[in-house]
Amino acid sequence: MFEARLVQGNLLKKVVDAVKDLVTDANFDCSSSGFTLQAMDNSHVSLVSLSLRSDGFEHFRCDRNMSMGMSLGNLAKILKCAGNDDIVTMKAADDGDTVTFMFESPKEDRVSDFELKLMDIDSEHLGIPDTDYAATVTLPAAEYQRICRDLSSIGDTVVISATKDGVKFSSSGDVGTANITVRQNTTADKKEEQVSIDLKEPVALTFALRYLNSFAKATPLASHVSLSMARDLPVMVDYQISDMGHLRFYLAPKIED
């Protein structure tokens, strides 16, 4: 059987809220090492990769590797019924066709359980190669969200270029053009405002803003987000989930005409 108890239950809610608009149905894979998900969006342009390590759960038991297909919309509906401070426990039998979510209030005065029907989902697992990225910028997650939102009002695509001067986000459209540059700032008073840039060589790539905007729905999960780029390769947008794992998005670049 599978059983996992997460004291910070709202973390699961944040994860599902972050991906449910990008991916409708997905398989959650459970093994003794943890709880993972890999799924592409419907257009197969981006890939979501979630990893929650077993040691991040208060209790984790998985006797046999299993894949649980879920509608993320339905899962979000169920998780919405959990209190913000509730402890969430997931349970599933090895051969069952449901997964149960149990919500316990911190004062232990309210317990509820919701059963979600599992579904058969044909999904392809992609191999994500280890990549030596040319540039990685780590910036406040809220700043990334703002850049994507602001540029979306100007154009449909963004050119992200990393040079020794900083990382520039440029967009253009009928309205005009916009450039936003973030520079390294590791001495900001507040840690949550720090920006760090790791540049091995300059790189510039073009991406659809629609997807980058969608990834920003993961903002509540982490104070910072990292964008890693290499020439002619998908960008990796990485939200670290403290003490547990990560939620990563990969987006294929656009090719200049």
Binding site: M40, S43, H44, V45, S46, L47, E124, H125, L126, G127, I128, P129, D156, T206, A208, L233, P234, Y250, L251, A252, P253, K254, I255, E256, D257
Partner: peptide, 14 residues
């Protein structure tokens, strides 16, 4: 859209 690559052309299927 035009010029948009698929993620599957970068990450091989297992």
């Amino acid at each position: 859209g035009a010029g948009q690559r698929n993620i599957t052309s970068f990450f091989g299927k297992h």
